[in-house]
């Protein structure tokens, strides 16, 4: 049986068991998360994202070694997509970090998306909370850069590293405006390739377009070769200095508020949608409106608006009234 005390004491079995509950959407998970929540909020959370094959796992492997060298415990959540057809997955990110497997100060957990869109699942977010409550001072989230993932990871991580490789179709070109804004550190990996300098130049150009501000962290572009470790120490240092930067002048607090508010908003949005839809779909107004559409008595947009007009949100509590 899971004991919250064990999780808080950093016991890996307990923490892993808890993450499993979260991942399986076990009813017990919510109860336990509630009790863990007050204990979280201490970790520095790093997001590492980029297209498949750019070397994210190898970079994280190097980062773990660097942070361990500074005597900091590290936890990693490595997210991979589930097969949309079978629901199965091979979770192989750990393969490149396996030399740390027997190190008690390292916790690596692979997670499959299990049908969630946008790469990062809510389960991954909750898993970070568990690791935070377990007392890991540094938590790294790895996620592939499909769809909206990069935007999602910025809602969880204090510092986002975007990994790219020079000179490929899905390399530098893949970094579009929206993603550019979420990155704190840009990493040109496999920098031994000939057009690495060009990639750095291009990225600096794109970043230069951001309006300068003394309150805002100026994103950096770094070159690395994850396979032989070149540039990884510098990368670890930059992440830590970003954290230091955030801790000054209340910036971390501000960032935290922004992240939490966004997450809270998305939670409420999902819950609201779920509840409102559940109530609406069984309401008479909804059924009537749909009948009208079927008989071509009205068009779908007008019908949808008429259904929405039946909603009244009561101010004194949050019941939905149809």
């Amino acid at each position: 049986m899971l004991d919250i005390k064990d999780i808080l004491a950093g016991n890996q079995n307990a923490g892993a068991g808890m993450i499993r509950l979260v991942e399986d959407r076990d009813p017990l998970a919510h109860e336990l998360l509630k009790r863990l929540y007050p204990h979280a909020g201490r970790a520095f959370i790093i997001g590492i994202t980029g297209s498949p094959g750019v070397g994210k796992s190898s970079l994280i492997d190097g980062l773990i070694a660097e942070f361990r060298g500074l005597n900091k415990r590290v936890a990693v959540i490595a997210c991979d997509p589930s097969s949309p057809v079978t629901g199965g997955a091979i979770l192989g990110d750990r393969l490149r970090m396996q030399r740390h497997a027997a190190d008690e100060g390292v916790f690596i957990r692979s997670m499959a998306s299990r049908g969630e869109k946008g790469g990062l699942s809510r389960a991954a977010k909750d898993a970070v909370l568990v690791l935070d409550a377990m007392g890991y001072p540094i938590i790294i989230i790895e996620t592939a850069g499909a769809g909206q993932t990069e935007v999602d990871v910025a809602d969880i991580a204090h510092s986002v590293g975007i990994v790219t490789i020079p000179g490929t179709g899905d390399g530098i070109q893949a970094i579009k405006a929206g993603i550019l804004e979420t990155g704190d550190v840009f990493i040109v990996n496999k920098s031994d390739r000939p057009d690495s300098e060009a990639a750095v130049f291009e990225l600096n150009m794109m970043l230069g377009l951001r309006p300068p501000s003394k309150d805002v962290w100026k994103p950096l572009v770094l070159q690395t070769q994850a396979l032989d470790g070149t540039g990884v120490r510098e990368l670890a240092r930059v992440f830590l200095s970003h954290f230091d930067f955030l801790r000054q002048e209340g910036r971390l607090e501000k960032k935290q508020i922004k992240m939490e508010s966004r997450y809270f908003q998305s939670l409420v949005r999902d819950l609201a949608l779920e509840k409102i839809m559940a109530a609406l779909e069984t309401s008479k107004g909804y059924q009537d409106a749909f009948k009208k559409i079927r008989l071509r008595g009205t068009d779908p947009v007008t019908a949808a608006e008429s259904v929405m007009d039946t909603i009244r949100v009561l101010n004194n509590d949050t019941k939905y009234h149809c």
């Binding site: 091979i90 192989g92 393969l95 490149r96 030399r99 396979l227 032989d228 470790g229």
Partner: peptide, 8 residues
Amino acid sequence: GEWKEPDF
């Protein structure tokens, strides 16, 4: 150092 296998 030692080699790290790529995925398969």
